[in-house]
Design a binder for these strands. Structure first.
Lengths: 258, 258
DNA sequence: GAAGTGCAAATCGTCAACAGTTTGCACCCT
DNA sequence: AGGGTGCAAACTGTTGACGATTTGCACTTC
């Protein structure tokens, strides 16, 4: 062919296959196409993506470090299952980062920051009135991303994003309920007011309160918070430093075929 | 069995080769044996560790996600070089996490926590008086790890550890100066006092102040904070999402042989 | 003499294959 | 009939090899 468009082949020149594969697997996990707790079959994934097992394995290692999957030695990799306790900690950490970002923004907001945030709050208001939960959800995401972008460095933003992804793994993300949207957006408005007042302490408090509110709403909608033990968490304490006395079958999720 | 000691062979049964390789490469990087900015030669590493290139590549992917190395497509992986700006952000984030941990500890210290921390401060005091910087450094590390362990969840601890590792990449860690040790340990003592007083707010402030003090001491000892641009940082904004208009040779660190 | 061009070596990215381990079913024994 | 054992298939872990790209030196040319 003479006039080749930027097809897949062309993309491979500027981006490693491993990178593409990881992004795709990550997408599959986050959208729930792979569902938490299930096994990642390497050759099945390789076949599905039309590549060899090498890139797939490398991609999985990255995901492992990212906290999305856990791997058992001669057994395979599983999509990580976050327990209630872990999810709550994730909320706490996000609260910490958000609060800090809000503090910074209030101390010296970049030009256009307030207008941008105000516009988002405005749109969320309309979405809430229309009971358009998906739209509210998307806007809310944008709002928080903007918060982190305006008030944090790149490293903090990445941590925040990673925490968000991990949170997705908590058995089917709790959907926002229509009623909660107004409550949530009221907190957004309070945050905005603190920004306008140039009050860092108030902004920090409002930011933390907002995420804690989200945590509370999350905990309330959590399905009973199944009292089973945290069961399958990250292998070692640090990551994989040493794990001598610990070897429990990740879960009885059977291999399905044969 | 006849009584075989846990030799290398035995270890391979319980721990993937990739895991061992990654830990080793990480050690090489953190101890400075590989020095920041230099290239990671895959087959050289493979030969050195006595394995094939596969595990080495997988290990590098993990390190990449961890933020210790950056990879350019058809060129190779480099030990990441953190700029002054990035190092300062890392300090900020550690301050955030430490402050939170201190707050939690002061709110309800686990049994034995205060005694454990007090003992460490005591030892650091003696090390400072003896001008034993290496020992002080090690004890200080223990102290902060203990802080995180006592006042944070596992996820926060891992983030903290990762940030610490990244900080090691800032061109030859600034050594603690004899004089600074007393200053630093005084802050430790203040923290301890806040714990004993069960004053979360004071503990939080003291914790944050301490890390900020460390940041200040670090910035002061920073070699001029070379005013060159951040040059080689993480490729894309988020990680590797998309990086179309960016392709600068990581650095003119030449390939050395031929 | 300096800049541009071409070639060859080194190295990365990817693939296919081999060995070891785990797993699940079927069979056998009690 | 219930439980234990053995075997075979599937899958992971690792290796070696091939093709593609980059890079640095040498040569040519202005």
């Amino acid at each position: 062919m003479t006039g080749e468009a930027p097809t897949e082949i062309t993309l491979l020149r500027t981006r490693s296959l491993t990178s593409v594969v990881r992004q795709e697997i990550e997408r599959l996990i986050l959208t729930g196409a792979i569902e938490a707790g299930s096994r990642l079959n390497e050759q099945a994934l390789a076949a599905r993506l039309g590549v060899s097992r090498g890139p797939v394995r490398e991609a999985i290692r990255g995901l492992e470090r990212q906290g999305l999957v856990v791997t058992v030695v001669n057994q395979g990799s599983y999509v990580r299952k976050v327990s209630v306790e872990e999810a709550l900690e994730l909320y706490d950490l996000r609260a910490l980062l958000t609060a800090r970002a809000c503090e910074v923004i209030a101390a010296g907001p970049p030009p256009g920051a307030e207008a941008r945030l105000a516009a988002l709050v405005e749109e969320m208001e309309r979405a809430a009135e229309a009971d358009d939960a998906p739209r509210y959800y998307a806007l809310n995401l944008q709002f928080h991303d903007a918060l982190m972008e305006l008030g944090s460095g790149p490293r903090a933003q990445r941590i925040y994003a990673d925490l968000g992804n991990e949170l997705h793994l908590f058995r089917r993300r709790a959907l926002v309920q229509p009623e909660k949207m107004r409550e949530s957006n009221a907190e957004h408005a309070a945050l905005l007011a603190a920004f306008r007042a140039r009050d860092p302490a108030a902004a920090r408090a409002a930011g933390e309160a907002h995420i804690r509110g989200g945590k509370r709403r999350f905990a309330a909608s959590s399905p009973g918070a199944n009292s089973t033990k945290p069961q399958q968490t990250a292998p070692g304490g640090h990551d994989d430093q040493e794990s001598p006395p610990q070897h429990d079958p990740p879960q009885p999720a059977r291999r399905r075929r044969r």
